[in-house]
Amino acid sequence: MLDRILEEAPRFFTYYNLIFLGGALLTTFLLTAFGCLLGFLFGFLMAVARGTTGWLLFPIRALAFLITESFRRIPFLVTLFIVFYAFRGTGISWSIFWVALVAVVVIASSFIAEIIRAGLESVHRNQWDAAAAMNMSTVQALRYVILPQAWKVILPPAFSFFVLFIKDTALASQIGLVELTFAGKVLNNRGFSAALVFGTVLILYFILSYPMTRFGVWLEARFATSRHR
């Protein structure tokens, strides 16, 4: 195995292949980053929706409940297939990146909604009472009082989820998105040694993921020390 890797390496690490892998790495990163950013936005809306009261908002609350509770129990691969075929069925011809992005957003918003909900619940009920007694609306209470306290509880696990999802996007290769894993398969199919190709792909994932893991650990330690500010 090793001599084959050494023999193929000069042919493998060519300018073209490196550009190809670099582009695929970028796709992996962008898919995760955009997916989690949008997931954060929708997750926030769903977390707030689940916290509403009154029968008027029941449909919204029920929908948010259904989405968060179900998609956290469906494998990402299956979600990818559902979204992929749903797009095909309705005849919308989006590029495969956007299709994969929709799947990432669905999953990410479900998980991040729960992270945000836990964060909002970590702020004591009496802060809401005080805000309401001062005539703050829900939006004002969130903006001035609740979120400034909750975001330190929310950010570390949300960031961990983002780092976790860098690796999960490897599954998007299965609907044909040319991200890092798919690029590995392409190069392997061109006849390069699987050990060389997938070894390189593993290292590239590691280079992307590891610094962010470290940053996440730092973030958590930093926020754990200062609860209020």
């Binding site: 009472d129 005539n135 703050m136 009082v145 400034p148 609860r227 500010r229």
Partner: peptide
């Protein structure tokens, strides 16, 4: 206006901000 048993001060604000937030923002 009400003053609560547990004070319910906004933990993310200084004493001054706690007093001024509602008159200024609301």
């Amino acid at each position: 206006a009400i003053v609560f048993q547990q004070y319910n001060l906004f933990q993310n604000m200084t004493a001054l901000d706690n007093v001024t937030i509602a008159p200024i923002k609301i």
